[in-house]
Design a protein around this nucleic acid. Structure first.
Lengths: 161, 161
DNA sequence: ACAATTGACCAAAGAATATTCGGTATTGGC
DNA sequence: GCCAATACCGAATATTCTTTGGTCAATTGT
């Protein structure tokens, strides 16, 4: 199995990234392959882990009463064990939709979705306060979704395409 | 056209959110509808704007040299015009994949993807420094993608389902 | 150099799916 | 009661998926 992605692979990824429900026939046309060859490539990209999954972007703000907020978290202690414990807790919470570990000033950035003010308070007092590992946090309600798009692979790897 | 989402709509959204490429036949089975009825529902949900689009989640960290980072931004001034200008700039940058406006302490949180150290520095010095509206910012390199999942609509609206 | 192997590709075909269409039942006004 | 609107189903056609077998070119081992 080859190690790198060629131009066509990047092309396939680039299309699927933005139009996950495109038919294989159309995708094949776009990248200049026969449907069968294209299908093989997609399956391989999936198998090799370049495509994690396909998801529908739901307009959560249209659902009544949802509150979206970001939380910056600093842990008390920074041993490997502390990180693991915190991250397992995060995985369990259905309200945390995203969590990245970051460098510089604090440790994690979370994105959280709840279904109302009550759930919002419950999350902060319940989940965060009860978690013994957290030194401090700051919660920031999302007031507007300014932008949410995929990386343009053609821009990102302009030199390789 | 009805205003609310019924139990089945939430069900459909819940499935499509996580498995955007599921076949309509299988989706119909899961939500207990005929394929035709299910198809109509999906099309309506799309037309009503509850489903924004379908996207493939690409494992960017597997692509060679990509750097992912978050930026917290505070604007100098806070008139409506300042926000608009900043947001238009954001829309133009292919490297900014996400931007939310937030309350509490600072104004925006950005998520940025670049293809190497050089592009990273270029972004900070170029895009951010040159933008006259920014008072201060802090950049935080993402060291680990701890979690990235969709909201569980069944949990979020447990009472309504 | 030269098989043998491998991988990517294509065309074709059968299986499965999407999408359209007509028709029925239920609902909510009027 | 009656009409219109809506949600649904089953069936039919158009399109697609997925498999299969075979060609070709590049790669590998000898």
């Amino acid at each position: 199995m080859q190690k790198e992605l060629d131009k066509r692979d990047l092309n396939v990824l680039s299309v699927l990234q933005n139009e996950a429900r495109i038919s294989n026939v159309q995708l094949a046309e776009r990248v200049g392959l026969s449907p069968a060859a294209c299908w093989e490539r997609v399956k391989k990209l999936e198998a090799r882990g370049y495509i994690r999954r396909y998801l529908g972007e739901i307009a959560l703000e249209k659902l009544p009463g949802t509150i979206n907020f970001m939380v910056l978290v600093t842990l008390k202690t920074h041993r490997a064990d502390d990180f693991i414990k915190f991250e397992t807790d995060i995985q369990k919470s259905a309200h945390v939709v995203r969590c990245v570990a970051v460098g510089g000033g604090f440790d994690y950035i979370l994105e959280v979705v709840v279904a109302g003010m009550e759930a919002y308070k419950d999350f902060l007092s319940g989940f965060l306060e009860r978690n013994g590992h957290i030194e401090k946090y700051s919660a920031h309600v999302v007031t507007k979704n300014v932008k949410s798009q995929s990386v343009d692979l053609n821009v990102l790897f302009a030199d390789q395409i």
